[in-house]
């Protein structure tokens, strides 16, 4: 886990890789979610994969470095909470319709619109919520355990 670069002076290559890696991982993640209930994998796995793509950056650049390279990660907590709220919404919206929680629309047996393998129904919201939460949460986790500029952390 000892990075090659010195603190505060990461290699340019690492920086570039760090910026690029999340891209493809997002594609994989999108695929995992889009395949719906048909095959192995779900929002959780997708989220971890994206987080794993972010991880090397933390290893290489340290927490501050990553923040400088990928400012968007600063919003990780909001993403996590947003994901949870989205998931909760998908779980509890049926209450508005007088149905038990975690009922889904279209209801069992009804027709579902599909775009390729992607089924457009409410569990998809759950999956997206889980994905967002996992990405956010694991990013925060990596940030917290990532190498700080100076040890001590008080």
């Amino acid at each position: 886990m000892r990075p090659g670069g010195r603190d505060g002076a990461p290699d340019a290559v690492v920086r570039v890789v760090a910026r690029l890696l999340p891209g493809p991982s997002l594609m994989v993640a999108a695929g995992l979610i889009a395949k719906g209930y048909a095959e192995v994998g779900d929002g959780f796995a997708a989220g971890v994969i994206v987080a794993l793509a972010i991880a090397p950056s933390y290893v290489a650049l340290g927490a501050e470095g990553v923040e400088a390279a990928l400012p968007v990660l600063r919003h990780a907590p909001a993403v996590a909470v947003g994901g949870l709220l989205l998931a909760l919404a998908s779980g509890f919206f049926p209450l508005l319709l007088g149905e038990p929680p975690v009922s889904h629309r279209p209801a069992p047996g009804e027709h579902v619109v599909k775009i390729g393998a992607l089924e457009l129904f409410t569990p998809l919201l759950l999956d997206i919520g889980v994905f967002l939460l996992v990405v956010g949460v694991l990013t925060v986790l990596l940030h917290q355990f990532g190498r700080p500029r100076r040890e001590g952390g008080r």
């Binding site: 209930y37 048909a38 929680p101 579902v112």
Partner: peptide, 18 residues
């Protein structure tokens, strides 16, 4: 009936989504 074919995924997202 739950619009899926991977039972585990359906359990996770629907039957036992809670």
């Amino acid at each position: 009936a739950a619009h899926g074919s991977d039972v585990v995924t359906v359990i996770v997202a629907d039957f036992r989504g809670l």
